[in-house]
């Protein structure tokens, strides 16, 4: 039972996953980076990126997804995102106070506008995506261990 489960689902599901996981990941990056000009933002983009990895894991079994993003790496990336946010916030001290928007505002309605806001979005997206993927991995690993015990 366990060996069958590790190989993943049927051929149809695998093919559809191979075709759709890339566009889902790309859509997550699009929503993440356009958060300040259109609806969306860091949280949603991070969760969509996590969902792309979760789809890979559900279709191909846990081995194949761990090859792309191991569990320790997920924790590490999550901490990296949090530290990036804090470092960006602390850089505001160069201009005066914490969380200051210290880069130039740029021209409105363009992608590179709004100063530091896209960088905040990227930091939060990395953090949320990696954190939720770590939670999901922990939940799945517990199940498999318990089935071994029985």
């Amino acid at each position: 039972m366990n060996n069958e489960k590790d190989k993943g689902m049927s051929l149809i599901v695998k093919t559809v996953t191979r075709l759709t996981a890339g566009p889902i990941f790309l859509y997550g990056i699009y929503i993440l980076s356009h958060g300040h000009v259109s609806p969306g933002g860091g949280f949603v983009g991070g969760v969509i990126i996590a969902l792309a990895f979760i789809q890979l894991m559900l279709a191909y079994g846990k081995e194949s997804a761990f090859k792309k993003l191991p569990r320790a790496a997920a924790s590490f990336i999550e901490n990296l995102g949090a530290l990036m946010f804090l470092a960006l916030a602390g850089l505001g001290f160069t201009g005066g106070y914490f969380l200051l928007n210290f880069i130039g505002k740029g021209e409105p309605f363009r992608l590179f506008s709004a100063g530091i806001m896209p960088l905040y979005n990227i930091a939060i997206g990395v953090k949320v995506g990696a954190g939720l993927f770590a939670i999901f991995i922990a939940l799945i690993l517990l199940r498999i261990n318990r089935e071994d015990d029985r």
Partner: peptide, 24 residues
């Protein structure tokens, strides 16, 4: 003040960024 078009994003990332910090 912020240069952001999406005002919800402007609120959670600039005017009230401490909320986002605490949520992280």
């Amino acid at each position: 003040d912020t240069g952001a078009t999406n005002l919800v994003s402007a609120v959670i990332l600039d005017f009230r960024a401490y909320d986002t910090l605490g949520e992280a």
